[in-house]
């Protein structure tokens, strides 16, 4: 049985299709974000910028991207 061409991950709570074997770094790039413009977490755990390339996404992974915002 062939591996699926794409998988579904949860991106900021919304279903999002990515190629099977897609890394977190590739997902960030596909969303047009500069690597340093966002910070990332997968399944509730922080994934540092230098580990995104090695972080291969799996079906159903919950990916969160954070960016700077005003705050008190």
């Amino acid at each position: 049985m062939n591996a699926p061409a794409s998988i579904i991950v949860s991106l900021d709570g919304q279903a999002h299709a990515v190629p099977a074997g897609c890394s977190l770094a590739a997902l960030v790039a596909s969303l047009q974000h500069q690597p340093a413009a966002v910070t990332t977490a997968v399944n509730g755990g922080f994934v540092p910028r230098d580990q995104r390339e090695r972080c291969v996404l799996n079906e159903g992974d919950a990916v969160l991207l954070f960016q700077p915002i005003v705050g008190g």
Partner: peptide
């Protein structure tokens, strides 16, 4: 000055404040 973090989808309306 204090700042925060927000999910990218929810932060779409920053409008240049940061």
């Amino acid at each position: 000055v204090t700042v925060g973090l927000k999910r990218t989808l929810a932060a779409a309306g920053d409008n240049g404040h940061v």
